[in-house]
Write a protein that binds this DNA or RNA. Structure first.
Lengths: 340, 340
DNA sequence: TTGTAGGCGTTATCAC
DNA sequence: GTGATAACGCCTACAA
């Protein structure tokens, strides 16, 4: 049942629309119509074309039609990294939404490196995608120039830039930093610190957190930095390091839920009660946060919504329109569970 | 410094190689040569072309060159899902290796669904990628037919099919199932069970595990099934369910490290000593396994190696050659830590 | 309803 | 070393 009824051999060229046309006894144009607007073709012709397509397993060449139509039906996503749970929800939603509209998703990882970012953008632009969704901002000047010159729709996400390149779906990392500081202060904590990654977004949160801590008249403890990717082990090490520097610490804000889980485990191993002796706040609201023991308080960011909105914006632009709102702040919320 | 010095406006068409040629005062062909084989061009000409390219921010159109050359310099990866840490290491390695060779990676998620798989394969084949890397096997008959007819290089991974479609980098899930049963038996366990996902690969492991358990003369306990994705919460629930059905349980084999971590946390919450009263084995050797408390024994699978080998195979084929070895079993190993 | 001509942007090939 | 020409596969525009 799996056999291939087609006469194609390994090295013969794949069929083209002309081959199918010949087989069906019609012109290439008729095959194109039968495929793209079946209603413009006689049922009888349609049948014969479909039959020929089935027999050859013909699949149209998107490079040719993309070239002709100047539309690739392709969207690229530029991620800092493919690993780690943080952006997955968004990418998944993006892919789903785009697929529903007939667009394909292509990914590239820049590894938080400006040179690589520009190079990657170049290879992406080569494909003439209908849109490019960037996690974060385009930081390389070269990348920004290329994108602007290309005329391709761009959606920057996860941040709210002062000078957007084009469209934006993001939220304020500064607002998160100070909101968490306030949240912990209100719950009585007077010695708080961060365990954090060291990318640009993380630094914004750190600065805002520290500023708020200082404004509240509390001691500012330098954060424990962790190398990417954020693992449970990094969270454990981070907490151990912080405790050495600040033995009176009563609350930590971690820049991801995995770090927070690691901190929680380390605390337990050291015999510190969570939340009794140490309060922990995560970031992301991944499933691990709710599933942990105790369940982790965390900052929820709606990655699915970011992905969906970004897809909407790109598709709107690809269809010649403009998105309802080119810059969207989706905000965040603090989900209080039992680790605080 | 960010300004665009080019005269392009939002709606004017992007520059083509002809525009650049005009600007540089040469023919389009010379621009093409300057870009693709600079050594075939006078240094003076090269300079003028490079200047024109820089001033226009010209990026060649890959659809046009792909059409002309019948090579897209593109590889597609077909994943069951983009979420979950299991395949990330492999995809990351695949992307890195392909990028180093000048290929771009495009991803698609099939959601473990045969119809969706075939549809996705069709849209992938449209782009005429140089290769397609599939996680698992192509299960839909339609998908297999399409791939065979397309003549595109295919690498199936994470499994060792009896009838490969083309090339394979995988390992035996049956071997894992029985190896873990043996491993636990040798450590004195006489009541073991599984907490497992329910995809085709998981079922193979389950069957082999059960068969080995039976062969050893031990009671066969039906597995606790978990829905995808495998979360810590699912692991906790799975262990709770198993304990109800099999109170004498002394060891569980979980189909992912996240499930294992969940089981470990649940055990601790219930006051069962790990490994004293309950031994736990995970699968994947993600970073959480080593970082957990206690560190988790797990089955290590070298995702990076799978990704690298798959990239090698695809590139070899794209360059007209054949891979050194078209079917590779990369095996697995049991990493013993402190949860057993 | 169906077919013909031409061009999308690039590059292999063959002249010069 | 450089340029003219034609072709890759498909689809818009027009003609029959």
């Amino acid at each position: 049942m799996d056999e291939c009824s087609c006469p194609v051999t390994k090295d013969s060229k794949p069929f083209t629309i002309v081959d199918v046309a010949r087989l069906a006894g019609v012109s290439a144009m008729t095959v194109s119509r039968a495929l793209n607007s079946p209603e413009k073709v006689t049922p009888a012709t349609l049948e014969r074309v479909r039959d020929a397509v089935a027999r050859t397993h013909f699949v149209p060449n998107a490079m040719a039609s993309g070239l002709r139509n100047a539309r690739a039906r392709l969207v690229a996503a530029l991620l800092p990294t493919l690993v780690g749970p943080v952006f997955q929800e968004m990418v998944q939603a993006l892919d789903l939404a785009l697929h529903a509209q007939g667009y394909q998703l292509m990914v590239g990882q820049s590894g938080y490196d400006a040179d690589r970012e520009a190079e990657l953008l170049r290879t992406i632009i080569q494909r003439r995608p209908d849109g490019i969704v960037v996690i974060g901002l385009v930081r390389s000047a070269e990348g920004r120039r290329l994108l602007r010159a290309s005329g391709i729709a761009v959606v920057e996400t996860w941040e709210l830039p002062q000078v957007p390149l084009d469209m934006v779906v993001g939220f304020s990392h500064a607002a998160i930093g100070s909101a968490v500081a306030d949240f912990l202060y209100q719950r009585g904590h007077r010695h708080m610190a961060m365990i954090s990654a060291n990318d640009p977004r993380a630094r914004v949160r750190i600065d805002a957190f520290s500023a708020r801590v200082q404004a509240l008249g509390l001691p500012v403890v330098p954060p424990a930095f962790t190398a990417a990717p954020s693992t449970m082990g990094a969270g454990r090490a981070g907490l151990a390091a912080l405790r050495l520097r600040a033995p009176e610490l009563s609350a930590v804000f971690c820049s991801s839920d995995m770090l927070a889980l690691g901190a929680s485990i380390e605390a337990r191993e050291q015999g510190w009660q969570v939340p009794g002796q140490l309060a922990i706040v995560g970031l992301g609201d991944q499933s691990v946060a709710a599933d942990a023991a105790p369940p982790l308080t965390t900052v929820r960011i709606d990655g699915t919504r970011i992905g969906r909105l970004a897809a909407e914006m790109v598709v709107a632009r690809a269809q010649g329109g403009a998105p309802a709102e080119p810059v969207v702040d989706i905000g965040f919320s603090i989900v209080e569970r039992h680790s605080t």
